[in-house]
Amino acid sequence: QRITLKDYAMRFGQTKTAKDLGVYQSAINKAIHAGRKIFLTINADGSVYAEEVKDGEVKPFPS
């Protein structure tokens, strides 16, 4: 399943989102408010992988 960072954070909370991605909650808040195009893939085992689309390139998040 693929979902935006904002939607994932709204569904699970910023604290869990940060923990799942290995970053601080403040980084999640800042990324959402900056309007960054970050998409999360939720794997069947429950693990989460995030990618950011920037300038036409897709890069892992966090980099």
Rank of each mutant, 00 (worst) to 15 (best):
R2F: 08
G13W: 02
I32V: 07
K6P: 07
Y49M: 10
R36E: 05
A9Q: 08
A34P: 02
V58F: 11
K30T: 13
I28A: 01
K54N: 13
E51W: 05
S47R: 08
P60N: 06
T17L: 06
Q25C: 09
D45V: 04
K19M: 12
F39P: 00
P62W: 04
K59P: 03
V48L: 08
T41L: 08
I28L: 08
K54H: 12
V58Y: 10
R11E: 13
Y8V: 00
N43M: 12
D20M: 10
L21Y: 00
S26Y: 09
A31I: 07
I38T: 00
E51D: 07
S26D: 11
T15W: 12
Q14P: 15
D55P: 06
E57I: 14
N43I: 07
R36F: 06
K19I: 11
V58M: 10
A31V: 07
E52Q: 04
L5P: 00
F12H: 11
G35D: 14
K30C: 15
V53T: 08
G46Y: 05
L5C: 02
G13K: 01
D7A: 07
S63T: 13
G35P: 03
D55A: 09
V23P: 02
H33V: 14
V53M: 11
V48K: 03
K54W: 12
K59I: 15
V58E: 05
D55E: 09
T41W: 12
K6I: 11
K16I: 05
A50R: 00
A31E: 03
R2V: 13
D55R: 08
H33K: 13
Q1K: 09
T17A: 12
P62L: 04
T17Q: 01
M10E: 15
Q14T: 15
H33I: 15
V48W: 03
R2M: 09
S47Q: 08
A27W: 11
I32L: 12
Y24N: 15
K37A: 13
D20G: 04
V53Y: 14
F39L: 07
Q14W: 11
P60S: 08
P62R: 03
A9P: 00
A9F: 10
Q25V: 15
H33F: 10
A27Q: 14
A44M: 11
K54G: 10
K19C: 12
V23T: 13
R36Y: 05
T15K: 13
A50N: 00
K54L: 15
A31Y: 08
E51R: 05
L5M: 04
N43G: 10
Q25I: 15
Q1P: 11
F39K: 02
Q1V: 15
F61P: 03
A50W: 03
Q14E: 15
L5R: 00
T4R: 06
L21P: 00
L40G: 00
I32G: 01
K6Q: 13
Q1S: 13
R36A: 07
Y49T: 14
K59L: 14
K19L: 13
R36W: 07
K30M: 12
I28Q: 00
